[in-house]
Simulated assay, not measured.
Amino acid sequence: MYRALTIAVAAASLVQAGCTSMWDAVTSRRFREAPFKTVGKVISPDDPLVVLRADPPRPGDERAKAMNRLKEPIRNKGTQEDQDQMIDTLERAATADPSPVLRYAAINALGRFQDERVPRILMVAYQKADGQPEGAAAPPAPKLESAIVPIGGLSAGRAPTRSGSDLPAYTGLSVPTGYAQDTVAALRCRCLESLGHTNKPEAARFLAAVAGASGPEIKPAGSDDPEVRQAAVRALGHCRQEEAVTALATVLSTETGKDYVLTRGAHQGLVRLTGKRLPPDPQQWGEVVQAGVVIAPEPTWAENVIQNVAFWDKK
């Protein structure tokens, strides 16, 4: 009866608290141990600053959810001390936390901050998205000269046909470190998308390099991954800087006829940033860049919906 009543209360709170969060709560181990308290935390969660400052640290899922709720302190009646502390907390999580879930949440939170330190942190987080510990290196391969065995043997007085020295060298075994490739790609994509929302010139330059718009000699790690490049192009379309328009025009020019996804993303970003409804013609957009880029006002929610529908209709 007790559990049934608690579940009924939880069900009544689904609309107020959000179905996903409530379902996670009622199916968690904490719900079995303290059902009313667990439901209460979903309906009225702790202040994110309280959760992230807790000592000893709260469980990882609580910290990740707090990061997802976190608003930039300095722009929400917080103090400079609050701002500095949250920047430090998010930087540590985004660049060094062993949990990719916490890294992702921290990177996502940084994308909502307008602090001047954020682009640098996100670029470092991108470079460290592989999860490798500092200074990690593969162990040296052992020398196995003494283990070379004649192949073919000496039976019947025959000389060995192969010495064994031409076999592939033993590379050694080590404990796996770092994240899986799909996890690394997801973290890098999230870093790029958050960088795009900072609207900073240094962010636009980094995104351009990943998107392949800075020349073949500048290729950050991961820029050969198609999904990462697509994320960089999408992020450029939100980075309201002249350099972003130039980079998108370059991508449009180099990828037209080669990569439809990159071409379409570059065109959509150009329209969003400039407000010009030109076709995906590299020559026309090149003329726009040469004439001098003017960034259009941020489109409204309704304008974004209309633009996205128009692009899908053309697909």
Rank of each mutant, 00 (worst) to 15 (best):
L187S: 02
L14N: 10
L49S: 00
T20V: 15
L70A: 05
Q284L: 14
N199R: 13
T89M: 01
P73L: 01
D182R: 15
Q132G: 06
G222Q: 04
D88M: 07
E243T: 06
L144F: 14
V175R: 15
I74A: 02
A147N: 15
H238W: 12
R53F: 01
A106R: 00
T89A: 05
H238D: 13
Q268V: 05
V294K: 15
A105W: 00
V118Q: 02
A247L: 07
S165C: 07
V294L: 12
P100C: 02
Q127E: 14
T161K: 10
S163E: 11
L195H: 03
T254D: 12
Y104V: 03
G131H: 05
P297G: 13
Q85D: 03
D182C: 09
R229T: 14
K219I: 11
L52S: 01
L49Q: 00
A211W: 04
P142V: 11
V26L: 06
R103H: 02
P297L: 12
G215K: 08
F206I: 01
L248M: 09
E33Y: 05
P100T: 02
T246F: 02
G196C: 06
A232I: 06
L144G: 07
A169M: 09
P176I: 04
A54Y: 04
R240H: 05
Q268S: 09
C191N: 10
I74R: 00
V26N: 00
L236R: 03
V101P: 00
L207H: 04
K276T: 04
Q284R: 14
K314D: 13
S13N: 15
A17K: 08
M67I: 00
K37L: 08
R240Q: 09
M123H: 03
A125V: 04
G157Q: 03
P282Y: 07
T89Y: 00
G222Y: 01
G131M: 04
A169K: 15
V261Q: 15
Q83V: 02
L52Y: 02
S28T: 11
T177G: 09
V288A: 03
D259S: 15
Q290V: 11
G257V: 12
P279A: 11
P35N: 05
D24G: 14
A96E: 08
L236F: 07
D84H: 00
R112E: 13
